[in-house]
Design a protein around this nucleic acid. Structure first.
Lengths: 242, 242
DNA sequence: GCAAAAGTGTTGTGTCTACACCCATGT
DNA sequence: ACATGGGTGTAGACACAACACTTTTGC
């Protein structure tokens, strides 16, 4: 046992190493899946872990996780990236004082990034044996996504540019983990001016059926669409919208 | 110019120093105020900054901020503490590679912690000249509080153990920055089973008026009280509550 | 009685769920 | 024609805001 002494910064304080880790989520085959990387080395050799790595000088945490992810997934395929919690339990990694900042990344369902041989997608509700505290980070990422599906337009990051309402419904169903009504999903998102009909239609499958209207997200950056559920500011002062 | 070389951890990676900073908020004199500390030394000598300091080996980030705060405010006076974002802009601090993890701390309005001479409360909407990127951290803390007032019981951390509805209304008004109706605040919080009437009453002031009923928060730990505003699970499956 | 503060009753509005019904396409 | 999936109409439940009105106190 006995850890080596920690490093000291130029201020004279011992400093932890710092890694960034990404919970990259995508709906594939109707299930919400996370990108995992199989460790070759000790500790936890053979276990699956989140992609990421050490922070370098002169980069931000977000630049760091984008750099590390570029080795696994083309960064341009990430439609959204946001910070989760920073974990600091001193014993979270054996033999090293290491902090980890989690990120949530989302990949639209129409992309299929080429992956290195040691990485693979796994359903978030059927995780394999996972290294360190990565299970809890995955859980935090999924909960963040679920919450934001309710009050933001974050669905844009799970969906292709163009989609029918029932395709979108399937994405929401997979991410939320419960049935979603296409009827009501459409009405909620159109009322909030999140979805926009393009006029185009998708031709039906070989089994027939009415062709679905193709929608797109009005904005493909995160917006809060349901700011104050309650305790909102009084009066007709609210008229200031557009 | 020319920074000294960064420290190296036992893994061979250069490592940043890491500080924790707290946005400690309390409603005082009807305004939401934040605890700030006046810097004696360069850089930013004379400017106000958030309390906090370096992370030490063998402590978590939360333990670290509690330790640093104990020098300013008795830690037992903090009714709630939660993590905000971790900032990593390489130039956020001159001459040092330093990450900072923000925390939001809340102090009930009936406490008046003794403060050292170099710290003072300042209204969050009238901040003095502030050091580093601390203004944005204060802003993030206030926004977190505002949002959680709408869908959690976080008001418990701003309020005394016992209070009347109009006292609570004043706290919400100060924190949200807009008028709040006591009538509707009571109904919302009672409907959600957040508030509980104790039966006791507060005697009126010298100017008369009907004595107000004393309430308490049913739970003094954070609870989400309005989980899914929309897109909630279907059907009478929702009956599972208590 | 009167002012002041607390509390209740009630109405209207907007948002959401659920479900019945209608529409457009392929075979 | 009929099966298949998409889309609309509508009714009911609920939560909330607004405001009038009543209750309880001090003076």
């Amino acid at each position: 046992m006995g850890r080596k002494p920690e490093a000291e910064s130029n201020t004279g304080h011992p400093t932890p190493s710092h890694v960034t880790l990404a919970v990259v989520l995508q709906v594939r085959a109707g299930r919400l899946q996370v990108l995992l990387w199989q460790r070759a080395q000790q500790p936890f050799a053979g276990r699956w872990s989140l992609p990421g790595g050490y922070l370098q000088p002169n980069e931000t945490l977000e630049e760091s996780i984008r750099r590390h992810l570029a080795a696994k997934v083309d960064v341009r395929e990430l439609a959204h990236l946001e910070q989760l919690e920073t974990l600091s339990e001193p014993k979270r990694v054996p033999r090293e004082w290491q902090l980890a900042t989690g990120y949530l990344g989302l990949v639209p369902s129409d992309l299929d990034p080429k992956l290195p041989g040691d990485t693979a997608w796994h359903p978030v509700d059927r995780l394999p044996a996972v290294a360190f505290d990565h299970r809890e980070i995955v859980h935090a990422g999924r909960e963040r996504l679920r919450a934001k599906l309710s009050y933001t337009n974050i669905g844009f990051a799970l969906a292709p540019a163009l989609f029918t309402v029932s395709e979108l419904r399937d994405l929401y169903t997979a991410a939320l983990g419960h049935e979603v009504s296409a009827t009501n999903l459409q009405r909620v998102l159109v009322r909030r001016n999140v979805l926009h009909a393009t006029g185009a239609r998708r031709s039906p499958g070989p089994t027939g059926g009415r062709p679905g209207a193709l929608f797109r997200f009005r904005e493909r950056r995160l917006e809060i669409t349901d700011q104050f559920a309650v305790l909102r500011p009084p009066g007709p002062a609210r008229a200031a919208a557009s």
